[in-house]
Amino acid sequence: MKVLRWYGAQDIRLSDVPNAVHKDNEVLVQVAYCGICGSDLHEYQDGPHAIPCGAMHPVSGHQAPLTLGHEFCGQVVAVGDQVSTVKVGDRVAIEPEYRCQTCRYCKSGDYNLCESMGFIGLMGDGGMAEQVAVPEYMLHRLPDTVSYRQAAVLEPSAVAEHALNRSALKPGSRCLVIGLGPIGLLLIMLARLRGITDICAVDISPERLHKAQQLGAQHTLDGRQPDLLMQLQQLSDGGYDSVFEAAGSQTTFTTALQAAKKGGEVLLVGLMGDISLDAFDLVNREVRLQTSVGYRNVYPTLISHIAEGAFDPSVIVTRTVGLENALSAGFDALLSSKEQIKVLINPNPSLNEQEHQFHV
């Protein structure tokens, strides 16, 4: 079968590998769509960051080279002897976090904090492939009213939903989202779904600012403006209740802290390394600094929202590509143009053609 395999920085290859084989507690999934995530782009640009090299991941048992892709969905084509929750033919979304199921965090239900945390497609062979073997606990069955195209964007939606769950945001709150990649845009959509109407969005891309406005942001601001902070203070009457930092840079982090009101909060959703902050100012204004990683127990809620027609994450999809041109038309396009937001890889065109006919 064909896969997109990571061998090193700037070295992702379309490869022919033996067909995937599932274990007794696994399911073999024919992949419908797999999204390209910012994490995948980082691994492509200058990895490894999360990909295990030189030692096996303790849960997956894999190391590089491995097949990328953790934002995926598809159809069950085979099940292991111990599998009881899905059957052949089921349409499924994958919640790609590995769980050791024995550590204190897994036992308490906080499985996104597993001591051996990791993601299929980063720490084990993932969904940029025609087929992939997946642990049963990762699977969520899809109702007929949820398309594969929508299900392929469930994973970044889960990141946004978990961040909102970690926040103190409630109807009537003022909300600021800095960074309008897929997560930032999904934060806006899901905040609106919670009844939040006073949302400001900041980015440097005109295309993404326009998209944020379409998705429900009341105000949009170019982050390069020299008076950005003054504008944010005016729009928020002195500061935002909740600020979501979804860009991942020192500049945007500093802006997020400065834009929070006294007693407000800053949620770090974007990934970044070492940063500095004015702790004196943070303490003086009692600003809470909160973090969010991955997700837990949010997929059923999101699937219900989609099935009911309340939420459609596929509106952020800007392009669909095949495995054979995923590097040039997917990875490279995302790195070179802010017009591309979410690109989906389609390893099995016939599977999606059948679904399109069904949903039409």
Rank of each mutant, 00 (worst) to 15 (best):
L41F: 10
G172N: 01
S167C: 07
S39I: 13
G127D: 02
M1C: 06
L271I: 15
R166Q: 15
Y111R: 05
P313A: 08
L142D: 01
L41Q: 04
P300D: 10
V283F: 15
G8W: 00
K211N: 06
L221W: 00
Q250F: 06
R104Q: 14
A326E: 06
E308T: 12
K23T: 15
V134T: 06
Q10A: 12
L277W: 06
P300E: 09
K338P: 06
F253C: 09
H219Q: 14
H210F: 08
D281F: 12
F244Q: 05
G195K: 11
L323V: 08
Q357V: 12
D24A: 15
I188H: 05
E353V: 14
E71Y: 13
C106L: 08
D222R: 07
G239S: 10
I188P: 04
L186E: 10
T318W: 02
H305A: 13
Y33F: 13
L335Q: 13
C200N: 02
V21A: 15
P96N: 11
V83L: 10
I341N: 00
R104A: 14
I178K: 02
G118K: 03
V243S: 09
D274M: 12
M272Q: 15
I94Q: 03
K170N: 10
M1R: 11
E265R: 09
N346D: 15
E286W: 00
H57W: 01
R208F: 03
I316C: 01
D203F: 00
L282Q: 14
D24V: 15
L229V: 11
T252R: 01
L154A: 04
M128R: 03
S292T: 15
R166T: 02
A32W: 01
Q234W: 01
Q214L: 14
E286Y: 11
P313Y: 01
E161W: 08
E26W: 04
A247H: 06
A152E: 05
G223F: 02
L221G: 03
L334K: 04
V343E: 01
N25W: 10
L41K: 07
A50F: 13
N19P: 07
Y44S: 04
T318L: 03
R5N: 04
H162R: 13
Y111G: 08
V59P: 07
G124K: 05
V59E: 03
P171Y: 06
G80M: 03
T145Y: 03
L190Y: 03
G264K: 11
H70R: 07
G124D: 06
Q213F: 01
R194W: 02
L4A: 01
G330W: 00
H70E: 02
S157Q: 04
C53H: 12
